[in-house]
Amino acid sequence: MEFFNNHKKLFGTALALFVALTIIVAILPAINNQQNNAPLPNAVELSEEAFLGKKSFIANGCVACHTQQVRNVDMDKIWGNRPGIAADYAGIARTGLWINTATLMGTERTGPDLTNVGVRQPSAAWNLLHLYQPRTVVEQSIMPAYPWLFETKEELNEDDVEVIVPDEFRKGVKGKIVASKEALHLVAYLQSLKQTPLPDGKPASDFLYQKKKQESDNAQSDQPSLLPDGNLLYVNNCQACHQANGEGLKGAFPPLKGSTVVLGDDLELFVNIIMLGYDARPEYATMNAVGLDNKLTPEEVTAIINHEKTSWGNNAKTVTLEEVNKIVEYINVTAKK
């Protein structure tokens, strides 16, 4: 056939077909998405520090292990309150002369998703320590350590942020470990990663592939004593700082083992700390509003409290859902004002 024996026609046709398909399947959808989506009205732009932190995030290739997308499937529920939508990424433009737009959606989840990490783990002290050496706070972690983002100094300057590192991880470091600008920026970026709530009245789309409600869920309404798994909730919400053994970290996070708050009878104080955070003890880092930020339900708070009261040798009287419910309701009402 003439067509097959003429290199111009043959290669020209193949190229034309490929380019046409490319335009239809990549370029037009890309342009369409770029033009027809805008950030949510209540979306917060990255601060200057956070933007520099994002650049550091890109430079160190964090996206190789951390995704930033909440898919609309049930298993992704733990990473955000709603599935990600185009508007979540619409505000992201070219990063710089050398660097392309970076939505940092990622394709590997060797480590946790970071879409909402600013809500889940906002503590600067925890993040800095975790960056310096992840295994100080999460024993099983395989994340790289980033000691080169920190300096050692003999004397602290006024605006220096010191990181208290447990002795076993200091390994020959003398002096005080101080976070560099870059580390602070990176933490600012991580703290800025929060899912923007949809504007009032707009329901989020559903998560797909919901698990069928288990029978125990039905039974729950009859038996209020059946609470969620307190241990799992503790691991997901508390353990990063207070540690698996409940002993916390010296100089950073207080122990729960033998703690007066945990063992004592002042339930209102206990619930308040879980829901609203705590900053009354200068020798420890500030605790954020874990309960409020992560929208913990009274059932979950009760489960956590009972887990903490009865673990690591703690042996205090457990509490009931009703008691906690009252306090949480009150907190939720006042917090909204």
Binding site: A26, I27, P29, A30, I31, N33, Q34, N37, A86, Y89, A90, G91, I92, A93, R94, N100, T101, A102, T103, M105
Partner: peptide, 11 residues
């Protein structure tokens, strides 16, 4: 760079 903003980058 003409079609990389927002989700364009991902596509």
């Amino acid at each position: 760079p003409g079609w990389q903003n927002g989700l364009g980058e991902t596509i």
